[in-house]
Design a protein around this nucleic acid. Structure first.
Lengths: 339, 339
DNA sequence: CTGAAAGCGCTTACAG
DNA sequence: CTGAAAGCGCTTACAG
């Protein structure tokens, strides 16, 4: 109906009150006499008034915006977390600014600057490993901030996640109980990815306790992709045919590994056990169904929203370390070691 | 080093010029004498000055922000598009505001309002079906806007996508050539999802031309999930054991369908052919590898960024209809009809 | 409960 | 090439 977008002033003029009153109706309705409030609400509706975010942000020094930087949204595990995070934020009237770091700390730093200059009221990053300048910039902004996907009770920053070491130890223990003694690992890139490093560390730790060797040659490091998982499996089985169990850094690699094993005519789990990590939707639909660890991605997203919103409300900066459960899910891709 | 965040004024004071000059250095450097420019840049670096997004947006009436609303980021096909969209935007100094509509037009409308009030400079939605209020609100905002995932040369709004009808006709034709005459369909929910509807329509259209019946009882509509695909397959094969080919609305449903067939002891493709849609990463790693249609999701994201950025630059509102290719990829899940 | 007014941190014609 | 100044559309102590 209107040509120009109506402003607060337009609403105020229409009702015959000050802009302050209209503003209050929007942000703190009970401060306004009900009769007035109703008129204002009516006028807002009639004019089709929509608050101007930037003006609001400038005046109130809050943007009602939360930034999140994940390695890549093109991995269901992060997508799920983003989905629940976004859902919770919307409920609370917040908007999500999303960025992807492509598993690069430099890229994460660049994205952090971009989000910070947008004035995000809170920020979520993935992992515990960040460039010092990233951390410093966040600190100076004095906004609540949380590391997702990690649980470290000693951390000086808040974190929400699970214990990767314990989770991977569970997998190792499961395989060990099945009499496996010759292991191979298909890991994600370890550099700049503390989650991948911790998973491998947990595996190593457990095997060491059992006095089992895990030579570096049996640990293949590659990007998280189906194709890479497949190639790694080929390499592993060709160079080390005695391997009976392959621990994969995530389900995507495991999917590729399963494919690779099939191509080589190696039957899983009869001849070879394979494990994943994350419990993506497809894990259950594969044949064999994938033994994996369930990552609480949805809950991490929810908790991150809850934590940040709470901190913003209180204007406090309390550090919290929230641990979520990541349980081992035994399915068909693991069984007793052959021979 | 600083306690308070430095403002333009601080930089201006430090260099001894006006804020206007600093502002110009940032937005249009060649308007400033090189000597001055260098001093300014130095001061900016030293002070750690970062522009205040909201103030900038308020004064310039541009936020350098693009909004995108997809059904759900928790579907690799949308995640890939978002990833490339975000990548392109970052390159250009823009930030992505992401929202999910959960395949609900009402939710889409709510998210649209939120993004519009954030002052996005451009907006991308998925599909051609939107609430009239959504369209009206976008129109009033006078910002460039594009419908992704559809190609309709007659549309009154810009669109970037592919021809779903043609793509699904290709699948149908492929199956027909393999002598299939008894079909089943596992479709996504048709309501509020024109892409799903078009895919089914293409299938129907082709079969009709071949004088083949596709009774409604053989078309199962369900949410896009592995589990739903599995259940639909059970239902289809139980009620219509003569079916030899099942057309699935996307790869996720096809994955579930494959699982369901396996559970029923039905061998794919010997006894039954199954097709997907999207060509997700896992399609190649399955056994049998999935016959599907490759959706150009990455390119859609890129093109969307390119289109919006161009429109914003020109301040024009030209309508474009960009068609991308979606080719059939024949793999192992389809073969000659049995008997 | 309400209003006048300052101010948030920039950009941008307009002069010079 | 540069500066003074208005103005973007809100919020929020401060008075009353």
């Amino acid at each position: 109906m209107q040509d120009k977008k109506p402003t607060l002033q337009d609403v105020a003029d229409k009702v015959g009150v000050s802009t302050a009153t209209i503003s209050r109706c929007l942000s703190d309705p009970q401060k306004v006499k009900p009769a007035v409030r109703e008129q204002v609400m009516l006028a807002i509706k009639e004019l089709g008034y929509v608050p101007h975010g930037a003006a609001r942000a400038l005046a109130s020094r809050r943007t009602r915006t939360i930034g999140a930087i994940v390695p890549t949204v093109d991995n269901a595990i992060f997508a799920k977390a983003i989905l629940s995070l976004q859902h919770e934020l919307t409920q609370a009237g917040y908007t999500l600014l999303l960025a992807n770091s492509s598993y690069s700390l430099e890229e994460e730093w660049r994205e952090t600057q971009a989000l910070l200059s947008r004035g995000v009221d809170g920020l979520v990053l993935v992992g515990e490993q960040h460039l010092p300048e990233t951390l410093e910039a966040i600190r100076r902004q004095e906004i609540p901030y949380v590391n997702l996907w990690v649980y470290n009770p000693q951390a000086q920053y808040s974190c929400i996640g699970f214990d990767h070491i314990r989770a991977s130890r569970q997998i190792a223990s499961h395989l060990f109980d099945l009499q496996h003694r010759e292991y191979g690992v298909i890991s994600g890139m370890l550099k700049h990815n503390d989650r991948a490093a911790l998973r491998l560390a947990g595996m190593r730790e457990f095997l060491k306790e059992q006095a089992i060797e895990l030579p570096d040659a049996r640990v293949i490091e590659c990007r998280y992709s189906v194709e890479q998982g497949r190639q790694a499996m080929h390499q592993l089985l060709t160079e080390h045919p005695d391997i009976t169990a392959v621990f994969c850094g995530n389900d995507i690699l495991a999917l590729g590994a399963l494919w690779g094993a099939r191509e080589l005519g190696i039957s899983v789990p009869d001849q070879l056990s394979v494990t994943g990590f994350d419990n993506l939707d497809f894990a259950l639909a594969l044949s064999p169904q994938l033994t994996t660890v369930n990552a609480p991605s949805r809950r991490m997203g929810e908790q991150a929203a809850e934590y940040l919103l709470k901190q913003i409300e209180n204007k406090s900066a309390e550090i919290e370390h929230i641990e979520l459960e990541a349980e081992l899910i035994v399915r068909e891709s693991t069984s007793l070691a052959r021979g």
